[in-house]
Amino acid sequence: MDLPILAIVVNIMTTRDVTETLDVRGKNCPMPVIETKQAADRLEVGDVLEVLATDPGSVNDLGGWAEATPGVELLDQDDDGDVYRHYVRKVAE
């Protein structure tokens, strides 16, 4: 019965359970996507990568990349007005 709530809690926990942070602040297209891909290649299955970016295009670009790329899952994206934070989990090799 509590499963949906449990799933939300688990999702929030894993979103913030960051294994590695990639800082691409100041870098522009195409570097945020390419460096995210390179960092994702180094991750183990289950790891969560946090990407810090200042490029506003990174929101759509990283979302599109994660959707089209097998083995990764975009958990969350947010921004505080200056920095965009993206959370990517590796789900398969």
Partner: peptide, 11 residues
């Protein structure tokens, strides 16, 4: 260069 490297990132 941009399209090639981005496509490579897409696999």
């Amino acid at each position: 260069l941009i399209l090639a490297s981005t496509a490579a990132a897409f696999g």
